[in-house]
Nucleic acid binder design. Structure first.
Lengths: 214, 214
DNA sequence: TAGATTGTTAATCGATTAACAATC
DNA sequence: TAGATTGTTAATCGATTAACAATC
């Protein structure tokens, strides 16, 4: 069990874990061996107290009087996040965003392997994207049965997203990284992580408006 | 002033505003005229109490015994978010993700207009992306002076992001939508909204790991 | 008017920060 | 040992939920 005594980790803590992983990765790459919560605090602009609280959800990775070993903490957080251990993904939707995701190599460096890319538009099928040949969504069922697919990336128009997700769920895919501009509604054992780009841009726009009213 | 008596709106509230906008847009498109906080609560899976609290940060948009007028509330939230009012953006980085963003039409529908796309790689210059011709980053300074650019989308490799952002800041661009896998560090009057896709995928991976440990 | 539902205050819950004893 | 810094408990702060008077 990752978290001490199996207690649930709050959303707030989870959302900071990738940040720890990123900063520690940079420190490790810079050849830095140890870091204190105070140094990390300055770097990440969160309090040292919060850093220690967050890490202690998972165990005592530090040493009094010394701080934290950078490489050790980096790999512990990686393990907690489940990176490293390989994940097999498919991309559903071979539009611009689907292609962009397939082509970004930062994902595979962390063990996220794109195994197939699918589109409903037959005229796209056979095109090569990031070393994969775009397949018809008709082939999804067979493909998912043959490979051990863990996560589906939903990059289809919002009108199609719910239906596609339900079909994938029936094919026993329970984990979704959703880029469609809509919420997916699936049974409780499904895990959906949505990235709503327009929402993010709107939050920026809100902050701009607030600043200009000052 | 948007918020009642000018008080600062919490991050938590801001993050829910685009969701309200989206759901109300869908209700309006479906021809639904009124909605109560309780109905919206069921739809959005947040409590009715929270919805009323959130909205009352900005004023009383509802009516006792009736609820909220869908079209009115939709447009009020749009106004609060600063959508509708046009924003001029440039995209810096004409890689796959930059192109995908330029090509997604959902942004311009909300008043976010892409005016130019730039890349440091001269061999990409002149290529057409979403009706725009990719320009050399050398042209940025003149372009930004001539057009009224409000927001820069940073879609360059993480090694280049900080430098590019600083240059844009010097050219008087203060608002950044950052997709590079690093934090941007800029003076306090800059507003940076980052989208770290890998972080999002790692959060999903974390939740998968947690589920599998149960 | 009676019923419904808001706007708002008060109560609860959870997350962050502060403090410090434990210990390397 | 003395100094540094963690792990952890307690105090504070902020966000969510509950409750209900106001009112359409």
């Amino acid at each position: 069990m990752d978290s001490k005594s199996g207690k649930t980790i709050s959303k707030a803590v989870i959302s900071r874990l990738p940040g720890y992983h990123r900063f520690l990765g940079e420190l490790a790459a810079a050849g830095i061996e140890r870091v204190s919560s105070q140094e990390l605090s300055r770097l990440m602009k969160i309090t040292a107290s919060q850093i220690r609280q967050d890490l202690n959800n998972f165990g005592g990775f530090g040493q009094q009087g010394y701080g934290y070993n950078v490489r050790r903490l980096y790999s512990e957080i990686g393990r907690i996040l489940g990176v490293g251990r390989p994940h097999n993904l498919i991309i559903v939707g071979a539009g611009n965003l689907g292609r962009a995701i397939a082509n970004y190599h930062g994902f595979s460096e962390q063990g996220f392997n794109f195994c197939g890319i699918f589109d409903a538009n037959e005229s796209l099928c056979g095109q090569e994207v990031a070393g994969l040949s775009v397949m018809s969504v008709d082939k999804l069922e067979d493909f998912v049965r043959d490979y051990d697919i863990d996560i589906a990336v939903i990059v289809v128009p919002k009108e199609a997203a719910q239906k596609v997700a339900e079909e994938l769920y029936r094919m026993d895919i329970k984990h979704f990284w959703n880029f469609a501009h809509t919420e997916l509604s699936l049974p409780d054992d499904a895990i959906v992580k949505s990235v709503h780009l327009l929402d993010s841009l709107m939050e920026l726009s809100f902050e701009i408006s607030q600043k200009e009213m000052k």
